[in-house]
Design a binder for these strands. Structure first.
Lengths: 123, 123
DNA sequence: CCTAGACATAGACGTTTGTCGATGTCCACT
DNA sequence: AGTGGACATCGACAAACGTCTATGTCTAGG
């Protein structure tokens, strides 16, 4: 069904859509698929809270153990959501010793924000 | 199951979350639920193309008949997606005679873009 | 080595989502 | 009145999703 079953490298999900402001001209099927993949990764209450908790955490990173309890979900569920966020390029994962530290990848949300914003007048 | 079965008035989906930049401090459950609702409405390839087609159309509005054929889906399916976008406050609906014209609500995507963008230094 | 702990993966299960065909509703025109 | 067209709603169904329990993997200490 989809033309590309292969997964995009994290952080480049918008490679094909990054320069086409949503409101300027109709998106192609490929562009909309890329954008939808990224939005879908964000479009969950738990994942939004994970992103905000990681971004607001001291040092800009947090390990799984710090994220599990506040959300009231099991550790596998949190790991599952974090994996989705990493695959979308929204978070990065850094395993140090026994702990896995997750951090925000600012460029991804910046790019998403730019795509959604009002296109510049383009003089 | 949900605490509020009642639907938010269109355009105000971010009422509870509009002023909390995602990266500044952890979102509450309610804020993340509101944001997720809006993102979920956008997180579909067909709906993204609908939004871009409507926004880029002459006069800033388009009727269902103009949106159905290019996407290769049936009319009920397009109506279904448009309804979701209107309920999320992303599009507005204006029925004139037999035709229903859909137009972009710029403020909603602007607000979403702002929530996702890097928070200001806050001096 | 062997145990304990942090995290990931696998499999199962109920719920939600996207799509369709069929049908309903409303307006315009004859 | 009655017909045709534009759009919405309904009901059904497969696919995708979120969550859990159980289990695997790897690291650090005794």
């Amino acid at each position: 069904m989809s033309t590309t079953a292969i997964q995009d490298p994290p952080g480049l999900s918008l490679a094909g859509a990054c320069c086409a402001p949503l409101r300027r001209e109709p998106l192609t099927a490929a562009q909309s698929a890329d954008l939808a993949r990224l939005l879908k990764a964000l479009a969950d209450p738990v994942r939004l809270r994970l992103v905000s908790m990681v971004a607001a955490h001291d040092g800009g990173e947090a390990c799984v153990c710090e994220l599990t309890e506040p959300l009231g979900l099991t550790q596998p569920t949190i790991s599952h959501h974090l994996k989705i966020l990493v695959e979308a390029g929204i978070l990065s994962r850094d395993k140090r010793g026994v702990w896995a530290y997750y951090a925000l990848v600012p460029a991804t949300l910046d790019a998403l924000s730019a795509v959604l914003s009002t296109p510049s007048p383009n003089p």
